[in-house]
Write a protein that binds this DNA or RNA. Structure first.
Length: 754
DNA sequence: CTTGCAATGACTGAT
DNA sequence: TCATTGCAAG
C-alpha cells in the first residue's frame, strides 16, 4: 500500500502541496509527525535532492526517528543527506564551517548552562559586585533573553529602555557583566547555547555570500513545533527561506509552552503577515486519545483567550473518565500512583512503556521513584541531572575539551586541580587576574610565562608546567589516535580513573562505572560512524554539549515506566498518563500567577499533559507536601475545576479490591473524599537498597510465578515454590544444592530463566 | 593547600 | 531535603 493512502484529506494536502509558504496547524495527536515525515519523503520522490532539504525539529531524538522513518520510504543512503536536527545542532555545524569568519576556532567549545553560570559568577566577583543582587541565574537569563532577541552587549548598553529597566531593578551595571561575558566567551573560544543561534545570525548578517549559499542549499525548509521558536530562530528561518519561500511550518498554538526561554507565540500567529499568499492546513482529527480525553482537554484550553480557532475531534471510543485522586501527602501520592500503575499493568496486561508520570517540576520525581523501586517496577527518569551533567563525566569531558581547545576557560578551571595536584584557589585567582590584565586566556598565562609574567611561587609554577605539558601531550594525539583511544588514554593519564578507582564508597564505585560507560559510549561512537575512516575526539565533542538523555536511549531502557516533566513530554504519547501534583502554586506554578499570559501558558502546559494520554488519564494532588524540608499545605489546582465535570470520575472504582475507601468528588468537583487506607508495610528507605537493585530485571521479577526456574548469584539454579505479597516481595525457592531458601526479591537479584 | 564541618539558599521549565 | 559555599584549623 502506498504510504500516502494512509493519510486523511487535510494531511494529504499538507503533504502534496510542496511549493510556497505553508502553515500546518496540528492539534494534539493529529498525526503531525506523519505529515512532516511523508512530506519530506514525498519531496524526495518528486526528485528533490536531500541536500536541499532542511528540517528543524525540537529534539535530536525526534530528528533521528523521523530520519529513520523517511529512510524506510526512500532508502538509507538518501535519507542521511537531509539536514535534520534541532536548531542548535544544525546551526552549530554550520558555525563550525565558518567560525573563522567570526574570529572563532572551528573547534570552539559549547558552554552549557553550568559553564555559563560559573563564568558569570567569576565576572561578578571580578567586578566586585554583590552576588546577592547580581545573582548568576538572574543575570544569565537576562543575557539569554537579550541574545534571543538579537541584542548584543553593545546594543544592550545603548538601549535606553533596557538600561532603565536594569536601573529600576537595582542592577545598573548588568550591561558591564554582559560585556565582560561576551568578551570572556570570545577569548575562551566558547559559545553558549544562545550564541549558536545568535552567532549564526551574525554570520548571515555580515557575510551575505554565506547566507546566499545556504539560501540556495536549503530550497525546502520545514520547521516543527513552530509555536516554540524565539525571535532569533524566527529570523534565521525567515532569512534562509527568503529566496525560494518553500517554507513549511508545523505547530499548535495551544501547545506553546516555552515562552520562558524566549519562544514567541506571535511567530505562528504572524505567519500570515510574513507570507500573505501562504497556504493553511488544519489537522483537527485526533488519532491518539479517547473522546473523553480530547473533550476534557478542549474544555480546558477553551478558557484561553488568545488562540487560533480549531476544533479537535476524534473517532476513537468514549474511553474511561478522567480520575481525580486526592492524597494527604506527596509520599502517599507516590504510593497511590505506583499501586495504581501496578494494578492497571496486571489487569490490562500493559507494558511498562505504556505508563508515564508527568509532573510540573523535576523535584517531584522522588516520591514516585521511591515507590517504584519498592515494588521493583523499572522506570526511567528524563531530565533532571542528565548523564552528561554528572560531575565525573563533566570532569573527564573537560579534559577532552581543554585538549581540543586550550583556551576553554571553564574546562581549565574545572580540572587544573582535579585530581589534586596542589594548584589551589589562590593560585588560580592570581592567574585569572593576570589574564584579565593582559586580556588573554588563562591558558596563555600558564603556557607562556615569558610573555605574560605573573608572580607565582616557583613550586606552584612547576606544578602548573607539569599540567600544561600533560595537556599538550594529549593535544599531539588529537588527530593521531581515534576518539576512543585518546579518550581512554586521557582518562588513564590524567589520573581520573585511578582517583575514582581508589574511592571504594558506593558513590565512588558508581562514578567509576559512569566513566566506564562514557568510554564505552566513545567506543560505540567510533564504531557506529561508518562514513569516515577515523573518528576523532573533536567529532565527539562537537555535539556532546547538545546531547540529552533522551537522545541516546538504550535498548534496555525501552520497557520502562517514564517519569518526566510535562515540558519534556511534548510530542510523546502513552496509553496511561498520570499528571501529578495538581495543586495551586505548584501547577499552576506560583511564578505564573502574576499575569494572564503566564497563567495561559500554564494552562497550555496542562493541555499538553492531558493530551499525551491515549486510553486513560489520571490526575492527582496532595493536600500537603514537603517543600525545602517542611510540610506545606496545598489547595487543588484550578485546572481540575476547569475540566467539564462530566468527564471526571466523581466517585467509584479507581481501585479494585482491598476494601479501601475511595476518593469521591461531588458534582461541584470539590473533592470531599477521604484518603486511602494504605496497606501497612514497612517502608524501606532508598538508601537501604543495595547498589544496582534498581534496574535488575525487575520487569521479569514482577511476573514471577510459582514453578518458574530462577538463578541466584550464590545458590545457582532453583525453582520457585511459593510467593508472598502482591506484588510478590518474598519467595521460597528450592535449590538442588542448598535446599529451600526464603528470599526477599528486592535483595536476592534473581534471574528469571523461563 | 587541604580537610572537615557549619551555614546557606534553592524548586519552574531546557537546548 | 540536598548540594554547594565559607570558614577555621591542620
Amino acid at each position: 500500500m502506498n504510504y500516502l493512502d494512509t493519510l486523511n484529506q487535510p494531511q494529504l494536502e499538507a503533504v502534496k502541496n510542496t511549493e510556497g509558504p505553508t502553515m500546518v496547524i496540528a492539534g494534539a495527536g493529529s498525526g503531525k509527525t506523519r505529515v512532516l515525515t511523508f512530506r519530506i519523503a514525498y519531496l524526495m520522490e518528486q526528485g528533490v535532492d536531500p541536500f536541499n532539504i532542511l528540517a528543524l525539529t525540537f529534539t535530536n531524538k525526534a530528528a533521528k526517528e523521523m530520519k529513520s522513518r523517511i529512510a524506510k520510504i526512500v532508502g538509507d543512503s538518501e535519507a542521511k543527506n537531509i539536514s535534520m536536527g534541532t536548531f542548535h545542532s544544525v546551526f552549530s555545524r554550520i558555525l563550525r564551517h565558518h567560525s573563522d569568519k567570526l574570529g572563532y576556532p572551528s573547534n570552539f567549545t559549547i558552554y552549557d548552562t553550568q559553564d555559563s553560570r560559573s563564568l558569570l559568577k567569576a565576572i561578578i566577583k571580578d567586578l566586585k559586585l554583590d552576588d546577592k543582587i547580581y545573582k548568576s541565574a538572574m543575570v544569565g537569563s537576562r543575557i539569554s533573553s537579550a541574545k534571543n532577541n538579537l541584542i548584543s552587549a553593545a546594543a544592550y548598553q545603548s538601549n535606553t529602555d533596557i538600561i532603565s529597566e536594569d536601573r529600576q531593578s537595582g542592577r545598573p551595571r548588568l550591561f558591564e557583566i554582559y560585556k565582560a561575558y561576551e568578551k570572556r566567551c570570545f577569548l575562551a573560544g566558547a559559545m553558549d547555547f544562545d550564541d549558536l543561534l545568535f552567532k549564526t545570525n551574525v554570520l548571515f548578517r555580515d557575510h551575505p555570500e554565506i547566507l546566499h549559499f545556504y539560501q540556495h542549499k536549503f530550497r525546502y525548509i520545514l520547521v516543527d513545533e513552530y509555536q516554540d521558536t524565539n525571535y532569533s530562530q524566527y529570523i534565521l528561518v525567515k532569512k534562509l527561506a527568503a529566496v525560494f519561500q518553500n517554507i513549511c511550518v508545523v505547530g499548535d498554538d495551544a501547545q506553546s509552552i516555552y515562552s520562558f526561554r524566549g519562544a514567541n507565540i506571535q511567530n505562528i500567529l504572524n505567519f500570515k503577515n510574513d507570507y500573505p499568499d501562504y497556504k493553511l492546513y488544519k489537522l483537527e482529527q485526533n488519532y491518539r486519545s479517547s473522546k473523553t480525553i480530547v473533550s476534557a482537554a478542549n474544555s480546558v484550553i477553551a478558557k484561553n483567550k488568545n488562540q487560533i480557532q480549531k476544533d479537535v475531534w476524534t473517532d476513537n471510543g468514549e474511553g474511561s473518565k478522567i480520575k481525580v485522586i486526592r492524597t494527604l501527602t506527596d509520599g502517599e501520592e507516590g504510593k497511590t500512583v505506583v499501586n495504581h500503575i501496578y494494578e492497571t499493568k496486571v489487569n490490562q496486561q500493559a507494558n511498562n512503556y505504556d505508563f508515564a508520570i508527568l509532573y510540573r517540576t523535576n523535584a517531584q520525581s522522588r516520591a514516585f521513584e521511591e515507590h517504584l523501586r519498592k515494588i521493583n517496577l523499572p522506570y526511567k527518569i528524563y531530565g533532571g541531572l542528565s548523564f552528561y551533567q554528572r560531575k565525573e563525566i563533566k570532569d573527564l569531558v573537560a579534559y577532552y575539551r581543554l585538549t581540543a581547545n586550550p583556551t576553554d576557560e571553564e574546562a581549565l578551571k574545572r580540572i587544573i586541580n582535579y585530581p589534586k595536584r596542589g594548584i589551589g584557589k589562590t593560585s588560580i585567582e592570581k592567574v585569572a587576574v593576570c589574564a584579565n590584565h593582559y586580556g588573554v586566556s588563562l591558558w596563555d598565562i600558564l603556557s607562556d610565562s615569558q610573555q605574560y609574567p605573573c608572580d607565582i611561587p616557583s613550586g606552584t609554577r612547576n606544578k602548573m608546567n607539569d599540567f600544561i605539558t600533560m595537556i599538550e601531550s594529549f593535544k599531539i594525539e588529537l588527530d593521531k589516535k581515534d576518539a576512543y583511544e585518546l579518550g581512554a588514554h586521557i582518562a588513564r593519564s590524567s589520573g581520573i580513573l585511578k582517583n575514582l578507582y581508589d574511592d571504594k564508597s558506593p558513590e565512588g564505585v558508581s562514578r567509576y562505572q559512569n566513566i566506564e560507560a562514557l568510554l564505552t559510549g566513545l567506543k560505540e561512537f567510533v564504531e557506529n560512524e561508518t562514513d569516515k575512516d577515523n573518528i576523532y575526539l573533536n567529532d565527539f565533542l562537537m555535539d556532546v554539549a547538545l546531547l540529552t538523555d533522551a537522545d541516546d536511549e538504550k535498548e534496555e531502557d525501552k520497557d520502562k515506566i517514564t517519569l518526566m516533566t510535562i515540558h519534556a513530554s511534548k510530542g510523546l504519547e502513552f496509553k496511561y498518563v498520570y499528571v501529578v501534583g495538581l495543586e495551586e502554586n505548584l501547577f499552576p506554578s506560583q511564578m505564573a500567577l502574576n499575569s494572564r499570559s503566564e497563567l495561559e501558558e500554564e494552562r497550555r502546559l496542562f493541555y499538553v499533559a492531558v493530551t499525551r494520554a491515549e486510553k486513560e488519564c489520571t490526575l492527582t494532588y496532595a493536600t500537603s507536601r514537603f517543600k525545602w524540608g517542611n510540610l506545606t499545605t496545598a489547595e487543588p489546582s484550578r485546572f481540575i475545576e476547569e475540566i467539564d465535570s462530566k468527564h471526571l470520575e466523581l466517585s467509584g472504582t479507581s481501585y479494585k479490591g482491598g476494601g479501601r475507601s475511595l476518593n469521591a468528588v461531588n458534582s461541584n468537583h470539590k473533592i470531599v473524599g477521604k484518603n486511602f487506607n494504605m496497606p501497612k508495610r514497612k517502608l524501606t528507605k532508598m538508601s537501604d537498597l543495595p547498589n544496582g537493585v534498581k534496574n535488575l530485571n525487575s520487569a521479569k521479577l514482577l511476573d514471577l510465578k510459582v514453578g518458574y526456574n530462577v538463578k541466584h548469584a550464590r545458590y545457582g539454579k532453583g525453582k520457585v515454590m511459593a510467593l508472598e505479597g502482591t506484588p510478590p516481595t518474598k519467595a521460597t525457592v528450592f535449590f538442588p544444592t542448598h535446599g529451600n531458601k526464603q528470599l526477599l526479591l528486592k535483595f536476592a537479584k534473581l534471574e528469571v530463566l523461563n
